[in-house]
Simulated assay, not measured.
Amino acid sequence: MAEAKKAYTRDMNYVPDRITRDARRPEHGPVAGELWPVEPGRYRLVAAAACPWANRSIIVRKLLGLEDVISLGMPGPVHDERSWTFDLDPGGRDPVLGIERLQEAYLKRLPDYSRGITVPAIVEESTGKLITNDFRWITHDLFHEWKEFHREDAPDLWPVRLREEMDEVMERIFTEVNNGVYRCGFAGSQDAYDEAYDRLFTALDWLEERLTDQRYLMGEAITEADVRLFTTLARFDAVYHGHFKCNRQTLAELPALWGYARDLFQTPGFGETIDFDQIKRHYYVVHTTINPTQIVPKGPDPGAWLTPSNRG
């Protein structure tokens, strides 16, 4: 194997359909697939609590008050090579879609689909067909396209005046932190791991400095950028520090980031979406090449997340 191929690269090819108001062309982002209309009660968000990419969609749905507008199906934390499964539901079937595997919704839409079965995914309830699994645009569109159905006090997750800077911050968070922990964990060589490790902690040092003098990433209010960083931080000490060898420091040893993460955890819409048992089972059981014994660690103590953050 060539050295360059030993560095982890995420497959970023997703079903590119988007759900927009009246199936209009969106103002931001690509339109590489079909456009579907916003319609309450038509779609089901399938999102596993274990997965950080899915977790962000669960949080945004809660923050915007869309629980009665878009239903939520939650697969269990452990899956095989074929698909996420609904083993937490009675009879092992999603109660709305009636399927055992998320793969069934993918194949109903795309019979020859051969890529990974990922969450989050949005499925049309009436047909059971996948609409999109492009996590990059799912939360963006929940904010921009479903505004008519947001609760009255929903936060402004995408402030217009901060959009340009926020895009830059979120891009760095994605490449260096969200995906950076995976580059460490799935590195195929020492050199690839060392480079990934250095990039990750350079970014965490930047975030530590940024959050030392301001409460949230973009200032004094929560934005989508905070949602995207939080889901990685919530998994850092429980999984990434040991399992992915991101072990220069624990999150709890980074004062600003640890206070910031607890502040968000204790904010309605965030902490109640975190299930540390499911998170640990997913990573330590599914990743058998990294953890062949499939032993799940007992710690760390989740009670630490409820200690005062002193960020207000």
Rank of each mutant, 00 (worst) to 15 (best):
A252N: 10
V239P: 06
R215L: 06
V181I: 12
G188K: 04
L207Y: 05
L211P: 02
R215F: 03
G259P: 03
A252I: 05
G271N: 03
R199V: 12
F230Y: 15
E224D: 13
N247L: 05
V227R: 10
R199Q: 13
D213A: 13
L229Y: 10
T273I: 02
M218W: 09
W258C: 03
P255N: 04
N179R: 09
L211Y: 07
T202W: 10
Q249C: 05
G188V: 06
Q190L: 14
A261G: 01
E176C: 05
A238K: 09
G242Y: 12
A203H: 08
R215S: 01
D226G: 06
E208F: 10
G219K: 14
E209Y: 09
D194M: 12
F230M: 11
Q214P: 04
Y182S: 03
S189M: 11
F201K: 05
F276I: 11
T250W: 14
D194L: 14
H241C: 03
Y240R: 12
C184M: 11
N179T: 06
G188S: 09
T231F: 10
G269C: 04
C184R: 07
T223D: 04
H241A: 11
A187E: 06
V227P: 03
R199S: 04
A225C: 08
T273Y: 02
D191Y: 00
C184S: 03
A252Y: 11
A221F: 08
F276K: 03
D198P: 00
T202Q: 14
R235I: 09
E208V: 04
T202Y: 10
F230G: 04
A238I: 10
R210S: 10
T212V: 00
L254S: 03
N179Y: 04
L229A: 02
D198S: 13
L207M: 14
G219S: 11
K245R: 15
R228I: 10
G188H: 06
I222Q: 08
W206M: 10
R262M: 01
L251K: 08
A196F: 05
G180M: 08
G271H: 07
L257A: 00
A252R: 15
